[in-house]
Design a protein around this nucleic acid. Structure first.
Lengths: 201, 201, 201, 201
DNA sequence: GAATAACCGAGACGGTACGTCCAGTCTTGAA
DNA sequence: TTCAAGACTGGACGTACCGTCTCGGTTATTC
């Protein structure tokens, strides 16, 4: 049961893996997506290009690896006991992530690249979007179980209505996403669409 | 001071301009954004690279020119007399544009590129998003004037709530956007957020 | 009749050409054939790799160009009036060229490469060996005309017998080629094989 | 009979050695000198690269090993009792070896490589040329002892004059080496240079 | 109707990065 | 200790485009 040390088949160097991910991340933040090159990553990571090509098919996948680790750490689903509060916390966290943090820049770059290339769009959906949607739904599903979310609405639709406006602002409008914006979503849109007053019965 | 002998001559060749825009468009559809290269456009358009560089700063701007022409033609704001019906028609048109038409592919590519490069994001917003938001608002503003849209809601917020879910599906989820989805936005989300029953005064 | 200036079709840069030839030459002398790389030439010549690939198919051809210019200048056929003296002078010049001069190193490298690759061997023969053999023969042909070379021997065979031993030493043996060696060829081998005493008639 | 545990074991695997030599030989014939790579040899021989590096410093030395074995077998010095006939036989054998046989291709490749690299030239001379010259001389030395070769000529010089023309044709000219060519060397050049009529005394 | 200057096609140029191949070194586990 | 396997750093390959730069040839007015 214990992972025997030195057992991984064909002993990939974790030193190289980590250096590559970090270098790619840094380059993206410093120079933007086009400034991330395999050669640049290799040089900064102190790694040979061949090592990169051995383990990743494209810079997209490298950034995907970085991003997924960050998303897992930074975008945990809260559980406060109140659906509205879970949504508020999570939307705020997400807005901050997208607009202020390096890892959010990586995410935006990946979304951008996915618009350019069908294959990468599929990778992004399979490795991120699908699982993320399940997580996003989980807040609502807890609400359904708890009784403060209606059980007769399509939760996928609710997810799109709650998260879509945020992405619309960030990806298309370049308008600020502030607390009022989030609050309006949580306090106005959510209740009228899916909320149910925690009443008797 | 003396621009005398030989008088002001040439102007830009519209033949070249059109050929370039069409070539860029075709290449994008055939090969994706990365497959659009200045050399490729020049060759296909039968135009010299220098001619392209003379009139456009980047392939992004070339595609921007194509896209703006298409958007103006294809995404006209309807005016049926009913806000809900205007929204329904327009959202359906937009969904179809994004998911089915070549010009929609161009738009998605431009949105994608805007995520990679701040400067291009600014260009996209100034040349498209700002004006588009005004157009999108105009449906609602007519509704306010007409009395079937509440006058105490932030119309920009309503725009994000109505259009955001659509883009969320298209840009991030890869899920289908069908009539029910649009209808749910128009019939459920819109009325509860901004609709007002056309009552007496 | 006069070459109109700026007439060459598509204006190849002679600056680039010269810099490439010189860089290749220098690299060969400094680092040997394997040390001549297209990248190294490009860097040293201050030229883009693509420029090299545009005009030469391989480093072999680059060195061939250098070598042919040098050979033309350095291996002129002497004309002293005496076949034996012409041979002596030419063989000495050749021996010195091969064993002491940078251009001789280039020649040896090309001969070496020709052993590795049939296509290059053909290029070497067509661009050098064939013409050189004609030049080498010309010494003997003048001798035939003059009467101090027999007219019943195959001059190609004589060329092989006179030049072959020199190359045998240089290419295979690594033994010194001194004046005695040349003199033995001219004074012993040549007369008995092809010489004719300048007699009456 | 069981190798006691902790015993000084292994010696060089002759299976690996043979497989490497054969693979190198095959690759040279199939793909030329540049097509012989350590990786290619290792793969074809079913051997690890490390094993090759353990026993040979370069592909040159691998081919050298192959070649020396072949030369020893294929280029035996004949002993017919007549110097002229020994020369004729040996020169014919050599011509055929160089122009027709796989092992001759290896030899030409090694000679070629020796022109590119001083160190390899030295190896080639020490491991082949010096010994070969002794063998070539031995034909003449037997002739001297026997009395049909003059004893006042430098036999090294005679070797160069007899073998040089052959290599000149093969290495430089790309001209055919046929029986007449060999016969002319043996019947015209050799007697006048070093032959002595087998007379009395 | 001739002069003239911006425009055009063509494409060479110095560069950067691509993705691949191979060199030579190192490490692992089996025999 | 050797071996097969194969990951590692590193360097060069030959290609594709970038954006800049002539080069001549072609308009299309305006004197």
């Amino acid at each position: 049961m214990r992972p025997r040390p030195g057992r991984a088949p064909h002993r990939r160097s974790s030193r190289a893996r980590d250096a590559v991910l970090e270098a790619a991340d840094d380059l993206l933040v410093e120079r933007g997506y086009a400034g991330v090159t395999i050669e640049g990553i290799a040089e900064r990571a102190g790694v040979a290009k061949q090592t990169i090509y051995r383990w990743w098919p494209s810079k997209f996948e490298i950034l995907m690896d970085t991003f997924l680790e960050d998303a897992e750490n930074e975008l945990k689903i809260p559980d406060t006991g109140s659906t509205a509060e879970d949504l508020r916390k999570h939307l705020r966290r997400l807005a901050r992530f997208l607009t202020r943090e390096p890892a959010g820049q990586v995410m935006l770059a990946l979304i951008g690249q996915a618009q350019h290339d069908r294959a990468m769009a599929v990778v992004f959906q399979q490795r991120y979007s699908d699982e993320r949607r399940a997580l996003d739904r989980s807040i609502l599903e807890r609400g359904v179980a708890r009784g403060d979310v209606r059980d007769d609405v399509d939760l996928d639709f609710v997810v799109d209505v709650l998260y879509g406006p945020l992405f619309h602002r960030v990806l298309l409008a370049g308008l600020p996403v502030n607390s009022q914006f989030i609050d309006a979503l949580v306090d106005d849109v959510f209740p009228s669409l899916a909320g149910r007053p925690p009443g008797p019965q």
